[in-house]
Design a protein around this nucleic acid. Sequence first.
DNA 1: GTTAGCACTCTTCATCAGCGAGTGCTAAAT
DNA 2: ATTTAGCACTCGCTGATGAAGAGTGCTAAC
Lengths: 343, 343
Amino acid sequence: MLTERQLLILKAIVDDYITNAEPVGSRSVSKRDEVSYSPATIRNEMSDLEELGFLEKPHSSAGRIPSQKGYRYYVDHLLSPSELTKGEMSDIQTVLDSRFNEFEQLIKQSAKVLSSLTSYTSIVLGPEVFESTLKQIQLIPISNNQAVAIIVTDTGHVENQTVQFPGDLKGEELEKVVNILNEKLRGVPLVQLQEKLSAEISSLLKRYVNQYESMIQMLGDVFHTHQSGKVFYGGKTNILAQPEFNNVERVRNILNIFEEDNLVSKLFRSEDRGLTIKIGEENRFEPFDECTIITATYSLDGKHMGTVGILGPTRMEYPRVISIMDYLSKDMTKILTAWHQKK
Amino acid sequence: MLTERQLLILKAIVDDYITNAEPVGSRSVSKRDEVSYSPATIRNEMSDLEELGFLEKPHSSAGRIPSQKGYRYYVDHLLSPSELTKGEMSDIQTVLDSRFNEFEQLIKQSAKVLSSLTSYTSIVLGPEVFESTLKQIQLIPISNNQAVAIIVTDTGHVENQTVQFPGDLKGEELEKVVNILNEKLRGVPLVQLQEKLSAEISSLLKRYVNQYESMIQMLGDVFHTHQSGKVFYGGKTNILAQPEFNNVERVRNILNIFEEDNLVSKLFRSEDRGLTIKIGEENRFEPFDECTIITATYSLDGKHMGTVGILGPTRMEYPRVISIMDYLSKDMTKILTAWHQKK
DNA sequence: GTTAGCACTCTTCATCAGCGAGTGCTAAAT
DNA sequence: ATTTAGCACTCGCTGATGAAGAGTGCTAAC
């Protein structure tokens, strides 16, 4: 168990390092207002904290920097959540309050505010389909071999997509198909659409539609595409401004990850509801060994919808970011709910 | 006017520098097979070429590197276009031949091949709306205040978008609106939709629809969004692998540009049809002072559709990239045409 | 228990010499 | 008149050296 004084010093060191990005020496800790001990005393404590694994020395005559364990302890027990300033709150408010037509717009905006407020990179995962169910499906023919498929979920999310279309389908046939689909699939979770399709629908369609194979194929395409949620980014290059990423190789590794939405989606999707903080190797993904990821979830009617995330260096401004994320995710939930009810 | 020998040497230097990214000395030029002069002779010529502005010295005891003018001359008069290898051609073929439902898929694929073949960053501009006209517009109500707007162009391009919708609109009213729109706007270039809307349509709608203001607003939204073509990227981080961009600050400036599709769209949209090469400051955009942009256009029925572009260092593998771009853009045109006719 | 003092460690920065690559000039060779 | 060999010179790069500075860890005094 750490003593009061050790806590004080650990906190001071983390706070200092977070703002200055440089190893913290005993003297600068001692100079802090909240610390009233001499450098020598601090040195002894620092030595103990190092032995306990909370601090590290880059080399013998530098100051100390927090270890991953140190950050973890700081986050769990030490940090004093910072109040959002009026400006920050109103920034979030204005951006989110602006009228939006689509789910996606809200999400894009969120990603933008988040990155600009934190100056880290923000990742926002769009509605995750696991829990949402189909409310309505539509097929609108556009030319003689194209149609737009529209899917509406119970959460009010709309997806649309252009697809190849069996050439010579009569209007009444199409109507029949759409009717069947709506009848059989309404209320089905999106993730199960695919299997329902092959299990129940395909035989039914066979009876009514000539081109039934290409029809099935097309529907398969449609359902498949909506399996993975979309990913939105804010400030992709913000991370380059951090001194710890002053190295093109390392930066490239990280930026490359952003090119693969699937991967990002997997990495940032959080299983837990609420706020999650993963520090360094806790991410279990080597390129992020020196990064912290903070995620929060937003929801609708208590139903989990998606995740907002921040990627920054382990030396992250935890108090501020946590407050902002908390505020933002709750606000998104609120606005989403209001928006949904309006309909 | 340059002598034969000067041409030979200039070409040799550019070729060498392109592959090795290091200042080229007289000795290494002399060692080339196609060059049969001693280093001393080469040195004299190099000195002349420098005086003429085709070469530069990073410092007095380094070799020479091509100046912007040198690259320009090389591109205009010297380069021997490289034959595509079988592998490259089939790479392009396979990727583009794969079934695609939408315009966008073709374009995304193109961006991907292009960047992976060249290992530079590719930018592909989607259909530019300037020349395409409206073929059909549809409004599909989804909930009591949402609709999906679908726009089909004469080139077979489909765009769709979810929009806010005047709450209590009767089915017949909606139908009326859609009919008016189609009647009045068919054949109108997309860029003019907006003005046509306010000039002619709005008064007409006023007569038939109650919620006419919000209707107009919504249509304005829809038409506005489709003004600017979409931008697709491939290999955004490829540029980081180039030795001349081994500097986080510079890289950041460039990557930031990619975050603003509007800007990119402006920079890469080429006024000329066919292949265009802009070297360094010819781009008239400071962050690209050390970059070359090569663009080519693809079309449909002789009608200009969009642009494929490559961003790399001025030290670019011109012969290869040019061949690839040429081949790809022509192939895109071919496939697009085939696809369009199929319908 | 706390702190002052001090020797010790290690990085950083500037300086300097030596090396090597490359040039530019001159004089010789073709 | 060209071309080339030879050589002095330039300049960046590398590695060694040393002084400065920041910080530690230990000891002894408070």
